[in-house]
Amino acid sequence: MNVRRLLRPVTRLGALAAIVLLGGCAVGNRYDYSGSLTSLPVSGTGNLALSVVDARPYILSGEKKPDFIGLQRGGFGNPFDVRTASGRPMADEMRDAIAKALHNQGYTVVGATDPAPRKLELRIAEWKTDAMMHFVLHWDMTLSVYDDHGALLAKSSGSGTEEQGAGFQSHNAQSAASYFEMKFTQLARDESVRRALSAAPK
């Protein structure tokens, strides 16, 4: 009997196994940032304009869509895009999270162009997760507070790479949301930011 013919079903099974191994749990992963923040180390009252600017180079160039969060790698390190749970831009989900937390702290959050004594802007130069055996986050963000004339009152920045154990989609999604809470809070804890926000005229 022809060996090649005998091995045909084995080859087919192998190809199927390779597809599962290469793709498996790596395809179609989605993370949700909209509920990642509950409280913040700032409080106040009155209108507060809020904007989140996605300035990641691959988003600005159009290489990736605005709902791109990062990568989930398959069995051989082959990358698959991770996107937002809602399908909306990542910056919009992050803005929702910050707005909810600021509302909990007493502010009335309004749009970026609405009149307000203070404007809070989060600029994201980098926010990209990369998960395989480890969950890695590359981040670079700046939080700025402006007065109603657009003058800069306070600024705090941070960047770096974080790494921890990876798991299935739900674990990685939670890690991503937790890191956003941690990093945004780190920027908001800056004394000049807290002062500028708490001293807002009512």
């Binding site: 913040l40 409080s43 937790s178 809470e181 941690m182 908001a188 804890r189």
Partner: peptide, 20 residues
């Protein structure tokens, strides 16, 4: 499998740190 310990400010419950 996984233990995540978080530290929160007692005044406003904002996150202060974590260990995993």
């Amino acid at each position: 499998l996984d233990l995540r310990i978080e530290l929160r400010d007692a005044k406003d419950r904002s996150i202060v740190g974590f260990g995993d």
